[in-house]
Computed example of a mutant assay.
Amino acid sequence: MLASVRKSMRLLPSYEMPSDEFVAVIRRDAPGAGELMWMKDDRTYCSAIVREGLARVECGSLSESWPRKGVLNVTRGEPYQENPGEQPSSFVFLAVVEGEHGPYHYKGAAPQAAGPVNDAVVAFASGRKLGLISYEKHSTQIPETEICGADGAVCFPAYYPNR
């Protein structure tokens, strides 16, 4: 998985990834596809969404505050199209939450056009732990839903980005 992601990253000359031990694989999919996240420090994240050799990389700083308990970042859905020129076939979302509350799941039944929720935990030397979550939807017309941790302490709107 990481080898195929690194190959895709070479197409982005200004980008560099840390060594494998500092990268959290949130989801593995077909060969060369999945979602990764890593933290340069406990406030700065980078994410890579890889589909069929194409990597989309985003780096940013976690919010100082957000209206939902424990939620530090929810991204806009990144569109992916199966065939060039067609409408996107899926939208991938990533979220970062404070602490270990996983595994994460849709509140109630998962919407019909929603993909599975995947998560991983990154622990820092300071003891701070962040939950990294990826999920997708396969339609622009999908009912609003929330994603919650197993303990119910952290819930957030699945398709509402905070930036």
Results as ranks from 00 to 15, higher is better:
Y104P: 02
A48C: 13
L54K: 12
E100F: 06
N83V: 10
F91K: 07
C59L: 00
E86R: 15
H101Y: 14
W66M: 06
V92L: 09
E52D: 15
V96N: 06
V96W: 12
E82W: 06
N73M: 11
A48K: 08
A95S: 14
C59E: 01
L54F: 07
P103G: 07
F91E: 06
P88Y: 13
V57T: 13
S47C: 06
S65Q: 01
E64D: 10
F93D: 02
E86H: 15
S61A: 11
V57F: 14
L54M: 09
A55F: 00
Q87S: 14
P67L: 00
Q81H: 11
V92S: 11
S65K: 05
G77M: 03
G60L: 01
V97Q: 02
L94D: 04
Y45N: 10
N73C: 06
G53S: 11
R76K: 14
K69V: 04
G60M: 00
S63N: 02
N83P: 05
E82T: 08
V71Y: 01
E82N: 09
S65A: 06
R51A: 10
V50T: 14
E64V: 14
G85S: 03
T75P: 07
L72T: 00
S65P: 03
P67V: 01
G99Q: 08
Y80R: 07
S89Q: 11
V57H: 13
E52V: 03
C46L: 04
F91C: 05
G53I: 08
L54D: 08
G60N: 03
W66S: 10
L54C: 03
N83K: 10
V50I: 15
P67I: 00
S61K: 08
Q81F: 07
P103E: 03
S65R: 02
E78V: 10
R76D: 03
K69R: 10
P103D: 04
W66E: 04
E100R: 15
W66L: 06
P84G: 10
Y104I: 01
S63W: 01
V50C: 11
G99H: 11
E82L: 15
Q87E: 12
S89A: 14
E100I: 09
E86M: 14
G53K: 13
R68E: 05
E52W: 07
